[in-house]
C-alpha cells in the first residue's frame, strides 16, 4: 500500500516542534527514526497524519551525565546506545538491550524515544526502563514534566504521554559498583521481536524485573521481585507466572510464553549466582 500522509514539516527545535504539533489540529504526529511509524503508514494503519520530523533537533541526541543520573536524549539511536561508552558504564542494561533490537539498518535509524513512545509490549527498552527505575521527560505546550517509567506505560501502545507532548529525554539512576544488569530474551530469529524477554537489575540485594512480550504492555513483575528479594527462587518463578498475562498469537500460545518466561528468569537467576 502507498502511505497516505497529510503533510510533513521538519522541526528545528523542541519549541518549534511543539508549535508545529499545535498547528496540526490534532493530526500531528512526531516522526523520529520512522522504524515503527513508516511501517504503520505503509500498512494503512494510520492515514492523513501531519508528520513533524524531529530528527534534526540535535539537542535531543546523545547521552550525558547529570550528577548520579544518566540523561539519554530521545533521539539517541539504538546503534549509538549499543556503542556509547557512557551508556555501557552507567546503564549497561541498555547497552546489552540495543543489539537485541532488529537489525543494523533499523538500529541505525530507530531511536530510544521512538521506542518508548511507541510502547510496543514486545520491545526491549520499555521493559529496561522499568527495571532501571528510570524517569521519562515530556515537554508540551504546558511545559516540562517528569513521569516515572512505572507510571508511563498504560496499555497496548498506550502511554501517559499526551498527543501534543514530546518525549525529550530519559533519566536513569547510574549503575553503582556491584549492581548487576541482565537482559535475556527468546526470539525465533535474530532481530525479531522476542516471544518473551526479561530485563533484570539487581541493586544491593533488591531486584527489579521488567518483562516484555509477556503482556499487553511492559510489566514490572512485583510479585516475582518480592520473592527474589526474599531469596525464594521457586516462589519467584511461580509469582512471575501471575505477574504476567501473555498474549497468544500465531507464533506461540500464552502458556508457552509463560513457561518461557520462567525458563528465562531461572537462567538469569543462575547467571546472578542464585542456587537453583
Amino acid at each position: 500500500m502507498k502511505a497516505s500522509i497529510g503533510g510533513y514539516a521538519r522541526a528545528e527545535s523542541v519549541p518549534h516542534a511543539l508549535s508545529l504539533l499545535g498547528e496540526a489540529d490534532g493530526v500531528g504526529r512526531i516522526l523520529a527514526g520512522g522504524q515503527s511509524l513508516i511501517a504503520a503508514l505503509n500498512l494503512g494503519v494510520s492515514a492523513g497524519d501531519m508528520l513533524v520530523d524531529i530528527t534534526g533537533i540535535e539537542t535531543l541526541r546523545g547521552a550525558t551525565l547529570d550528577g548520579d543520573r544518566l540523561v539519554i536524549g530521545a533521539l539517541t539511536r539504538h546503534g549509538d546506545i549499543a556503542r556509547d561508552p557512557l551508556i555501557a558504564e552507567h546503564a549497561p542494561l541498555l547497552a546489552a538491550a540495543a543489539p537485541l533490537i532488529a537489525h543494523d539498518a533499523i538500529r541505525n535509524r530507530g531511536t530510544i524515544g521512538g521506542s518508548l513512545a511507541h510502547a510496543d509490549p514486545a520491545a526491549e527498552y520499555p521493559a529496561c526502563v522499568l527495571a532501571l527505575d528510570a524517569t521519562l521527560v515530556l515537554e508540551g505546550p504546558a511545559g516540562r514534566r517528569e513521569v516515572a517509567a512505572e507510571d508511563f506505560f498504560l496499555g497496548l501502545f498506550e502511554t501517559a504521554r499526551a498527543d501534543e507532548e514530546i518525549l525529550t529525554a530519559i533519566l536513569i539512576p547510574c549503575a553503582r559498583p556491584g549492581d548487576r544488569h541482565v537482559i535475556r530474551e527468546a526470539a525465533r530469529r535474530a532481530g525479531d521481536y522476542a516471544l518473551a524477554g526479561l530485563a533484570v537489575v539487581r541493586r544491593e540485594g533488591r531486584h527489579r524485573i521488567g518483562a516484555f512480550g509477556l503482556d499487553d504492555r511492559p510489566v514490572l513483575c512485583a510479585g516475582a521481585m518480592a520473592k527474589w528479594d526474599a531469596g525464594d527462587v521457586d516462589g519467584m518463578i511461580a509469582a512471575l507466572a501471575k505477574d504476567i498475562d501473555p498474549p497468544s498469537d500465531t507464533q506461540a500460545s500464552a502458556s508457552y510464553r509463560r513457561h518461557l518466561a520462567g525458563v528465562l528468569l531461572r537462567r538469569i537467576a543462575a547467571e546472578l549466582g542464585e542456587a537453583q
Binding site: 525465533r188 530469529r189 535474530a190 532481530g191 525479531d192 521481536y193 498469537d249 507464533q251
Partner: peptide, 11 residues
C-alpha cells in the same frame, strides 16, 4: 514479513 517467518542468514 513480521509474522510470516522466512529463514534468515543468522539462523
Amino acid at each position: 514479513m513480521a509474522d510470516y517467518l522466512v529463514p534468515m542468514s543468522a539462523e
